[in-house]
């Protein structure tokens, strides 16, 4: 028993050094050297392309109905028969309709992370008429813009098609 105790303590210290310090620190070194942009949060001038932001007003493409606070991530956790969820949905739908945006399911529902950076291509196309009207652009021009930003499933079969809202709006802002 006492021998076990000594072994447990020594092996815990050894594991702490190998697995708790050496392993993550070596990975950090490799990550910083080879994939510096990704390892630090994929930051650009306007934020992180991986973290969703809130876009208000009909002049922008909207993202998921998230809080977009990266310090408090997570979903709404409201159950599928929650009255609170139903009320939230009704409120969001009314808000979107007031702006003239078709309430696509992505724009009404919240994501799992609370900072989903993407929407589905359908949700982006659904917003084309309202954004075009607010910016005085043609629908065709904006539809072409969305099309340039559609990313299919990775390697053609992993995950789902999506559009990064930050990148989409960044290019929208530069559109003439």
């Amino acid at each position: 028993m006492l021998l076990d105790l000594r072994r447990a303590i020594t092996v815990s210290i050894i594991f702490f050094v190998i697995l708790g310090l050496a392993y993550p620190l070596v990975e950090t070194g490799i990550g910083q050297a080879l994939f510096n942009h990704q390892a630090n949060g994929s930051l650009s001038a306007n934020g992180s392309e991986q973290i969703g932001q809130t876009w208000d007003g009909p002049q922008w493409f909207h993202g998921r109905a998230d809080g977009d606070d990266p310090t408090a991530t997570g979903g709404s956790n409201l159950g599928p028969r929650s009255k609170e969820l139903l009320d939230k949905y009704k409120e969001r739908i009314a808000g979107l309709e007031k702006e003239g945006v078709t309430p696509h399911q992505d724009l009404v529902s919240a994501s799992g992370s609370g900072v989903d950076p993407d929407i589905s291509p359908e949700a982006a196309y659904a917003q084309v008429p309202s954004v075009a009207k607010a910016r005085g652009k043609s629908d065709d021009q904006l539809r072409a813009l969305v099309e340039r930003h559609v990313e299919g499933p990775q390697f053609g079969f992993l995950g789902a098609s999506h559009v990064n809202v930050l990148e989409l709006n960044e290019e929208l802002a530069t559109l003439r």
Partner: peptide, 26 residues
């Protein structure tokens, strides 16, 4: 099948139940 609360509002859900799900995964 989609989220029952969202179905109640009449919004169609071709992508299934996306409440609490990430777009890039589906």
């Amino acid at each position: 099948q989609g989220n029952p609360a969202l179905a109640e509002t009449g919004v169609s859900q071709p992508l299934g139940n996306m409440e609490g799900k990430e777009t890039r995964f589906g």
